[in-house]
Design a binder for these strands. Structure first.
Length: 343
DNA sequence: AACACGGGGAT
DNA sequence: ATCCCAGTGTT
């Protein structure tokens, strides 16, 4: 093994015997260098599911505190299934992508109602849970049950794209097909839990997006990108241009209560926010405050204007006592505005 | 295939 | 500013 590195021999992952040594080298490296993350201390499928939902498009450092608080509040799948959606959203507040919270809640109820509270151990049944796609299904199957299931997410996509020197964009159907095919070929029949953890960990700490640490890589001699410029991979489609827009909302306090409106569409559904102001007060009033927040490819300026109290709250609106504002789930930019104005 | 969906971290 | 992040569901 060491001689291969010294002599610079490139090993082709097309050969099954090389795949076996690749897997072993990766796992051995992980045993020595893998981080101690909270969700790696358990095989409880519910805890794994919680972590995987939270980690969708969300960085590890952001998730850790939420993960601990969540399991303290909803320690079991039964506890979550029995919870109210308002409490679920309140615990998720600030994490974003709130459909994840509603889907996790629905998944818990599905496990309770369809499987008698016993988590399904088949990949197909896991994948059928709401909010569980191909990645999350493979992650739960391998991390909780050590089933041999491939995974492709940000870290492993980058690692695989470099390993096979994939020169097409990974965020296209052909690119995804190639990555999943590679993941399937390389996932071992045994020890998939360790292997999948190791592949992700390699992408997170060594085979990084910027400044990959190829000199520290345990599988460098299998990497087809190594003779080229690994940092140029993976290729992605061009991004959309950022669009600036303005949102105006109302600050209406009456008898110690603030008027709030609940999101009903797809965005911030179930969360509370300041009521939107369609007409930015044609009288040319000054905003009480404004703040900026990014949203996908938009840069939004949120302006808050004082407004008179309505005789009755509109649809999906309610008065919230000023001292009770922290108990309701609120969209993050509105939370910022409310905290500042309530001081 | 394109889009919607949040929010924060890192450079 | 810009890119990125343990993605999924809808159109």
């Amino acid at each position: 093994m060491a001689s291969a590195r010294k002599t610079g021999t490139r090993l082709r992952l097309k050969e099954p015997e090389n795949r076996a040594t690749f897997q072993s080298a990766l796992i051995e490296w992980f045993r020595q260098h893998g981080r101690d993350l909270p969700w790696r201390r358990t095989h409880d499928p519910y805890a794994v599911l919680v972590s995987e939902f939270m980690l969708q498009q969300t960085q590890v450092a952001t998730v850790i505190d939420y993960y601990h608080r969540w399991l303290e509040r909803f320690p079991t799948v039964e506890a979550l299934a029995a919870a109210d959606e308002a409490d679920v959203l309140r615990m998720w507040e600030g994490l974003g992508y709130y459909a994840r919270a509603r889907n996790l809640h629905a998944a818990a109820r599905r496990v309770r109602d369809e499987y008698g509270g016993r988590f399904p151990r088949e990949l197909e049944k896991i994948a059928a849970l709401p909010g569980v796609g191909r990645y999350t299904a493979g992650a739960v199957a391998s991390f909780a049950f050590d089933l041999s299931a491939p995974i492709v997410e940000a870290n492993t996509a980058r690692v695989l794209a470099r390993l096979i020197h994939l020169r097409i964009p990974i965020d296209t159907a052909p690119g995804q097909r190639a990555l999943w095919a590679a993941a399937e070929e390389l996932t071992p029949a045994a020890e998939a839990r360790l292997y999948n953890s190791a592949l992700m960990e390699l992408g997170a700490t060594v085979c990084r997006s910027r400044a990959p640490q190829c000199l520290l890589c345990p599988v460098l001699r299998y990497c087809a990108a190594a003779p080229h410029d690994p940092e140029r991979l993976p290729i992605k489609k061009a991004r959309k241009a950022t669009i600036a827009l303005t949102e105006d909302c109302a600050w209406i306090v009456h008898e110690g209560r603030l008027l709030l409106q609940q999101g009903v569409g797809s965005r911030w559904k179930g969360l509370w926010k300041l009521p939107p102001l369609a007409d930015p007060l044609a009288n040319g009033e000054e905003p009480l405050m404004q703040l900026a927040y990014p949203f996908t490819h938009y840069q939004v300026t949120l302006r808050v204007f004082p407004a008179p109290a309505p005789l009755v709250p509109g649809a999906n609106q309610a008065w919230c006592p000023l001292e009770g504002l922290e108990t309701v789930a609120m969209a993050a930019p509105h939370r910022r505005a409310v905290r500042q104005l309530n001081k």
